[in-house]
Structures are given as C-alpha cells and as structure tokens.
C-alpha cells in the first residue's frame, strides 16, 4: 500500500468529555484507504459518532492525530516544506469530506436545488448555472429530479436523506462519512437510501459508515470495525467479523443484532 492510497490515518485518538470522566473515544487507531467502505458497528454510546465526527473535526479530539493525506488536521498550525508555520484551513479540508447525518440536516429555508448549489457556488466559486446543471444530473441519478424546487418539509425522510447524500456529492468529496443514515427512517424507506449508498460504493467512492444495518455492513463493507465503550475492539473483513468474531463483546453484540 503506497502512502497516497491512505486518505485518513487516525492515530491514538482520544475524545474525553467532562474533564476525562467520560471517555467517548479511547486510543483508537484506524486507517481509511482509497476505495474502502469502512463500516463502524457497535452498541449505542460506544463512541461511533464521536469517532466519525472527529474525522472532519466537527468534534475536536482531546489527543491523538488525524492525518488527511499525511497532514495532521488536529493541529491548528503546521509547518510546511520550507519550515514556515502555516495556519490550517479546516474549511478547505472539509470540502473534500462529505458528511451525511442521521437527521438529514437539509437547510430548511432552501429548496432542494438551493441546498445543493450553495456550497459549490460559495466555497468553490462554481458558476451557478453549471452547479444547477450538475445538481439536476445528480437528482436524476437518485430519481428525485422532480423535487428540485421542493422545500425539505415537503419531502419524506427517505427523500431527504437521498438529497442529503447528493448535496454532499456536489462537492466531489474524496471520502463520504455517514452517521447512521437510515436510523431515523421508517422501515420502508431504509432500502432506497441503502441502494444509493451501494451505488456509490460500486463506483469506488471511499466511505466510512456508522450503521446498525448488518446486512449492508456484510454485503457492501470491505472492512468492519467494532467499537465498545470508546475502544476499537476488533477490526476485520466482513467474513472475519460476522463468521468468526474473536472478541467476547463483539460476539455478544452480534448475538443481539443478528
């Protein structure tokens, strides 16, 4: 594996709350390689969301490092090749990482199309017409082109989440982070969202997915990590994790969810 194939390198990550009384993430090290579909599983409260949200610095880690293409994004300042101190521009890093939330978080005062074009136009300086065209193409891909002028409130949960995914794709991210994207959905809508995610994985998108959908994890994931009480207890391929789990707590967890 060459250096360039590693998108995210997480080393000894800790995230503590209440002055260390609550260890949400404790000494987690994991890499995200190009093309990976890394699935994070574990009981609720085990630190999955916190780990994921640290990856794009929505949460500030207590200690440890997160290298994005070799650059530590947990440090406010880094030193460049010439030994000069440069301030880290976290916004320009986040551009390259899409994120999809459990509760969709579409901008409620904007239409679907406006939701999608805002970031490319304002952050990348993309031409508004080009952005709109690109948005319509993406909407077609998820079968929602007739919803372009709707407001989020007029959409079902499944539709909202599909929009949230294509909104993130508008920025052409290198990696997509999903935090339980189907947990807030009615059961009949889970499939439509998972289908979009499967499509993305098939196209080679690098993804990190926190989910309770074990079927998805087994079928689409190429690496699974299991977290419990803030620690990463086991990592492996889907067959290793699901067919021959080693860790006691993982076995216990699987017996409950499968």
């Amino acid at each position: 594996m060459t250096e360039d194939n590693i998108i995210l390198e997480i080393k000894d990550l800790k995230k503590h709350y209440y002055k260390g009384k609550l260890k949400a993430v404790e000494d987690v090290s994991v890499n995200v390689n190009k093309g990976d579909v890394l699935v994070i599983i574990g009981p609720s409260g085990s630190g999955k969301s916190t780990l994921l949200r640290c990856m794009n610095m929505l949460e500030e880690p207590t200690s440890g490092s997160i290298l994005f293409h070799g650059r530590d994004i947990t440090k406010k300042y880094t030193v460049d090749e010439n030994g000069k101190k440069v301030k880290l521009d976290i916004d320009s890093i986040r551009e390259h990482m899409g994120m999809v939330f459990q509760h969709f978080n579409l901008f409620s005062h904007k239409t679907v199309l406006q939701n999608m074009v805002m970031a490319p136009v304002k952050v990348k300086g993309m031409d508004p017409d080009d952005a709109a065209k690109k948005a319509m193409d993406l909407l077609k891909r998820v079968g929602l082109e007739d919803r372009a002028d709707n407001y989020p409130i007029q959409l079902s949960g499944g539709q909202k989440q599909r929009i949230a995914i294509v909104r993130a794709l508008m920025m052409e991210p290198e990696v997509m982070l999903f935090d339980e994207p189907t947990s807030a959905l009615d059961p009949e809508m889970v499939g439509e969202v998972l289908d979009v995610m499967k499509g993305l994985a098939k196209e080679g998108m690098t993804m990190v997915v926190v989910t309770h959908e074990m079927g998805f994890a087994r079928e689409v994931g190429n690496r699974i990590v299991f977290m419990s009480d803030g620690s990463l207890l086991e990592e492996g391929s889907p067959s290793e994790i699901f067919n021959s789990p080693k860790n006691e707590r993982l076995r216990d967890f699987l017996s409950k969810v499968l």
Binding site: D91, R94, M97, G98, M99, N105, F107, M118, V123, R167
Partner: peptide, 8 residues
C-alpha cells in the same frame, strides 16, 4: 454542522 461539513 451540515454547513460546516460542506466546507462553508
């Protein structure tokens, strides 16, 4: 969070 995650 959604806005910041998009790079705004």
């Amino acid at each position: 969070e959604a806005a910041r995650s998009l790079g705004l």
